[in-house]
């Protein structure tokens, strides 16, 4: 398979995943900002959403304050923001188009339809109902791309490289969401009942669509260290760091089997996985949640570059 094709497949699925993540962050911010301040706290949720997408600095280059309308249009449609939903969908579609032949018709139609339909939200101030509609639309689009690939693509390198893109992006995103809110997860913030932080914890879960899963796994009220445990270490949780890295290991292995050769990317993924696999959440808090997450983000970033060097150039 052409290296360029693998590269485009990798980024195609990364951008779709990123579009969905941005949509979820908008959703979570929208819910929090709709609560009375004594529930949600005085933190600016819109600013948190910007941080979690990594676009905070860029936002303030062109904006004075993080107001709801400005952040929504920046995260949804700003073409100068590479993480905006519009930019991501465009980039995903451009990558898909460049490797049209490596996709099944179903997967191509899923991304092409998304791109065509996104225009109906474009270039107008988004009312709240319309914003919700957009969020729903993007989540559904991501499901369609993901599902069509899952159901129709041959289990060969094409598919594996797409999956690598998805899980690198997802691992990065979950880690960032946690890192932006790590302070409310620290044990000092613990309080029982409907306090400020409690709402925040629920919001974190919601932003990775894990609120229901949480209750199934722990069968108790939302506790910060369990939120961290769920999103970092629980392998059965599909967006947890552990699950994402397990998938990276697995798909890298499948590529290695197909090609009959292991390389630095495989070794590195196994190394990251082993650290997560051996960790307990108490240890993570002990050694510093923020430090742990920062290191993880750097590791995943480096793994991405290693994959790129090994296969995509």
């Amino acid at each position: 398979m052409l290296s360029r094709t693998a590269d485009s497949l990798f980024w195609f699925s990364r951008y779709i995943e990123r579009a969905e993540n941005t949509a979820r962050l908008l959703e979570a911010a929208g819910r929090l900002s709709a609560l009375p301040t004594h529930y949600a706290g005085s933190t600016n949720e819109w600013e948190s959403a910007l941080s979690a997408t990594g676009a905070l600095h860029q936002y303030y280059l062109t904006h004075e304050a993080a107001t709801a309308d400005d952040v929504v249009s920046f995260l949804a449609f700003d073409e100068g923001n590479p993480s905006s939903i519009k930019s991501c969908v465009q980039a995903a579609r451009a990558n898909a188009r460049a490797v049209r032949t490596a996709l099944t018709l179903e997967t191509w139609e899923a991304i092409n339809d998304t791109w065509l339909q996104l225009r109906r939200f474009d270039n107008r101030p988004l009312s709240r109902p319309l914003l919700n509609e957009l969020i729903g639309f993007v989540k559904e689009a991501s499901l369609q791309v993901d599902g069509s690939a899952y159901r129709t693509m041959l289990r060969t390198d094409n598919y594996f490289f797409m999956r690598l893109g998805t899980f690198i992006e997802r691992a990065d995103s979950t880690a960032r969401i946690l890192d932006v809110k790590y302070h409310v997860l620290l044990p000092a913030g613990e309080r029982i009942g409907g306090g400020l932080d409690y709402i925040q914890w629920r919001s974190i879960l919601r932003s990775v669509s894990a609120l229901t899963s949480y209750h199934w796994v722990y069968r108790e009220n939302v506790k910060p260290w369990l939120v961290a445990d769920l999103l970092i270490l629980r392998k059965e949780m599909p967006r947890s760091l552990s699950n994402c890295v397990a998938n990276l290991v697995s798909f890298l292995d499948q590529i290695a089997v197909e090609y009959g050769q292991q390389g630095p990317a495989q070794r590195m993924a196994r190394h990251i996985f082993a650290r997560l696999d051996n960790a307990r959440i108490e240890d993570v808090f002990q050694s510093g949640l923020h430090e742990f997450l920062t290191e993880f983000i750097a590791d995943v970033n480096e793994l991405g570059m290693t994959i790129s060097k090994q296969y995509l150039l």
Binding site: M1, L2, S3, R4, A6, F161, Y259, L312, L313
Partner: peptide, 16 residues
């Protein structure tokens, strides 16, 4: 850019 020539033979750059 996916192709290159070495010793008068054309190759494509692949993942392998």
């Amino acid at each position: 850019r996916d192709l290159f020539v070495r010793d008068n033979i054309v190759y494509m750059r692949t993942t392998q």
